[in-house]
Design a binder for these strands. Sequence first.
DNA 1: TGGTTATTTGGTAAAATAGTAAAACAAGCA
DNA 2: TGCTTGTTTTACTATTTTACCAAATAACCA
Lengths: 105, 105
Amino acid sequence: MPSVMYKYEARANIIKAMAHPTRLLIIEKLVEREHCVCELTDFVGDDISTVSKHLSVLKNAGIVTDDKRGTMVFYHLKVPCILQFLGCIEKVIHDRAKEQLASVG
Amino acid sequence: MPSVMYKYEARANIIKAMAHPTRLLIIEKLVEREHCVCELTDFVGDDISTVSKHLSVLKNAGIVTDDKRGTMVFYHLKVPCILQFLGCIEKVIHDRAKEQLASVG
DNA sequence: TGGTTATTTGGTAAAATAGTAAAACAAGCA
DNA sequence: TGCTTGTTTTACTATTTTACCAAATAACCA
């Protein structure tokens, strides 16, 4: 195993933090502007404790930051370049769909 | 839960496929050119069955394609835009390192 | 202080994932 | 056909992740 493996582990941890449908939904929602946990909970539709945990995963990974104002905690996206990546992901999905059509028809 | 959730699940599946240090290493290796399982096994240093499984995960996600030539199977990266994303990930890591320094000093 | 709202934490059962050894398969050659 | 090499699949256990509920915490207001 290459000795630079720790570098890939650090990267994998961040990617892992993104690798959940709900967290992707949250990330995309946070692109427009910051949101409090309660707003994100309404939007996602899971239990608030579940949403809070997803947000802590994103925070630990360094993808979002939190800001407590009064009783509410606002989260905001720290790394907008993640959006470009989602475009790349769409390309994978699109390419695959096209191939499946080709192999059928 | 939003009814578009299947879309986020599809994305998450692809991201999940990337979220492993060895698979990131393989992806980066495949940027230069295609490689057979045996070459990747030497490079990564894991058991060939382990590497093969990682490759099948990447293949199922649509990130690589395989091409059997004789007894060997060559894999090649289908989505080079993934590399840009790795740049974004580096930014997350770098930002976080900077903050940790700031909070200490 | 007591009550209310917003969020996080802890515990737990269910689901998903990782890792690997062994078996299976496929291609080429004697 | 049978042997060898290269790769894939299967089967299994161990580990991790997830989602919910309930309890704990924190900030504010009366």
